[in-house]
Computed example of a mutant assay.
Amino acid sequence: MDGAPAELVRDALADGDPLPGGTGFAGELDGALVRDVLGRRPVFSEADEPGAWSFDPTTLRAPTPVPAGHVRTEDGDRRVWTLPDPEPTAGLEAQRSVTDAVVDSATAVDPDGLAVAFSGGVDSALVAAGVPDAPLYVAGFEGSHDVAAARDAADETGRELTVVELSHDDLRRVVPEIVAATGRSNPMDVGIALPLYLVAERAAADGHGRLAVGQGADELFGGYAKVVSPGSDHRVEADTVRGARRETVLTLPDQLERDVLALRAAGVEPVAPFLRDSVVEAALRLPGDRIATGDERKVALRAAATDLVPESVRTADKKAVQYGTYVSRELDRLARRAGFKRRMENHVGRYIESLLE
């Protein structure tokens, strides 16, 4: 069992408890495969042979992921846990719960062999605050938003920062490795995984076996623009902030599968403090105005960061990693240079496929 003792998972199955404590789990238990409700740790079996399974899909002929919250047996998949949808708690009480859970989770991280993926935003700054002696790493092309923000934030906090300066050769080399590890070749997944992979690769080369990441913060705490005004945003079906936030949380299993597989392929084990059950449970009880407003996103998370990170970092806007690092821009540039023009349908995707040949 990856991520939790077998007895905890047995108890969670018996009680139907989707958040039994810890940071997620996956693996074989009593002859069945199980995966936690948020899919924080992926597990796969052969499409035609559920008894043949692995945490690494590259070792299987036709790997099929176990869905989050399910048990897989020879009879098929059965949902056993559903993400809770509790009524919101009053604002101040909800904020205290989030602050306590976030701080406790961040400071509980074992610093041994740990590095931090650091982009200079509030998410990674909170993670870094919990492990004050861990080195920080950021990847990006020269002049990118993430590199500049990370340098400024590291200077303000007096932390050691390693900048992994990206090149076109890095992208050409790593794209096939990411596709092989994750089984995904679409430009969005590749663009997100690339900077994570390259940070992890450098951290591993420097002797760090674990990488702390801020995964889950945007989904749980309302970091996306589409959560702010859901009634007028076609990207979500919900018409409330809490409903839209739930939609984004339910995308986590698919995202985490990609991220975990990419990071492991690069040589590190991911550590995600925001995905601890206690943090998830507290975040799910937030009222809408503690999630996002027209003036501020991740309201409760930013409040939890008060006195822990510099004010300029606590309030800073953050770009999505594929844009903040310029990876998407440079993939587009490489595609066009290789003859895949923008007028062509899916020109970056076609370029990625050409790198696999």
Rank of each mutant, 00 (worst) to 15 (best):
A134E: 11
V102S: 04
T58H: 05
F118P: 05
G130I: 04
A134T: 10
T64F: 03
S54H: 10
T64C: 13
A90R: 10
S105W: 03
G113L: 09
G121A: 08
V122W: 03
H70P: 01
P65M: 00
F55S: 07
F118T: 04
P88A: 04
Q95V: 08
R78G: 00
A134Y: 07
G113W: 11
V71Y: 09
A106G: 00
W53M: 02
L126F: 13
W53A: 07
G113A: 12
T73S: 12
S54D: 14
D104E: 15
V131M: 07
V122D: 06
L92S: 14
P67E: 09
G76F: 04
A90M: 00
A129K: 00
D123G: 09
V103T: 15
R78L: 08
T89Y: 01
V116A: 11
P65G: 08
G120Y: 08
P63F: 12
F55R: 10
V102P: 07
A128P: 10
E74H: 14
T82E: 14
V80L: 10
V98L: 06
S97N: 13
P111N: 06
W53S: 02
G76T: 10
S97V: 04
D77C: 03
D110Y: 10
R96V: 14
H70M: 00
T73H: 00
P84N: 05
A90W: 01
R72S: 04
G69K: 13
T107Y: 13
V80S: 04
D85S: 11
D85E: 07
W81L: 11
V102G: 05
A134N: 02
D100A: 15
D100S: 15
A101V: 12
A106V: 14
